[in-house]
Design a protein around this nucleic acid. Structure first.
Lengths: 111, 111
DNA sequence: TCAATACTTAACCATATGGTTAAATATAAT
DNA sequence: ATTATATTTAACCATATGGTTAAGTATTGA
């Protein structure tokens, strides 16, 4: 359990990986397309995807030469359970939330 | 913002640090008392506390030779905002939550 | 004043992380 | 059959992380 939480929070502790997760909210994507917006080599992205996969935050399914990445909706659950049980998890300022969701939309439009 | 989130999730990605946070839910504690339940040197705990402090999850206030550690209730907020905005943040199985809260109680009793 | 207490800092170590480039693999298209 | 595409694997590198022990610094108590 603790090891799983370590892996989860650790996976979330990198901005590139968080952006990838947000991109995958929109739709499933091929590895190359995931890599496209980032100023980073393909192997680097491939590694990030492996980390997200091991943490259970995404799944990958190869069809032909394309490896499709998709969000695993339950992946974040253990982390959210921990945060809720930690108790300091109030509903945040609605404006913070709106601003952040807005920034996600900008991000996906950027592609 | 991203750097702050990196720091926050990274601080949460270590089981020792998460346990420390849960201990501090109960009450403020001196560094030595924080260290007591762990099979780890004092400098190691001191480092963990610095990391929690830099992430904004706790504050430390020295009075005399005792450095009091206290939870910073708003510290986790940015992480919770991100998770909520990520959207896959359902209220989890109530039994999962109860089991986890129970395990926290056990943990604090252990001291 | 001297010793004990409550730490922090320094120096070190092994392993992990996040990136790179080059080479390998498998599939699809020509 | 050859080439292009999509991706992974390997080898490498610099820096970060999480621990250690030993030494240093205040503060308190005797």
């Amino acid at each position: 359990m603790q090891a799983k939480l370590n892996e989860l929070f650790s996976a979330l502790s990198d901005a590139t990986r968080r952006e990838i997760l947000i991109m995958l909210l929109e739709d499933d994507m091929a590895v190359t397309d995931v890599a496209h917006p980032f100023d980073m080599s393909l192997p680097a992205i491939s590694k990030h995807l492996t980390i997200l996969s091991n943490a259970g935050l995404i799944t990958q399914e190869r069809r032909g030469r394309v490896n499709w990445c998709k969000l695993e909706p339950d992946g974040i659950r253990d982390a959210s359970v921990w945060m809720l049980s930690f108790g300091q998890f109030d509903i945040p300022d609605i404006e913070d939330l709106e601003r952040l969701i807005e920034s996600h939309i900008d991000l996906t439009k950027k592609n």
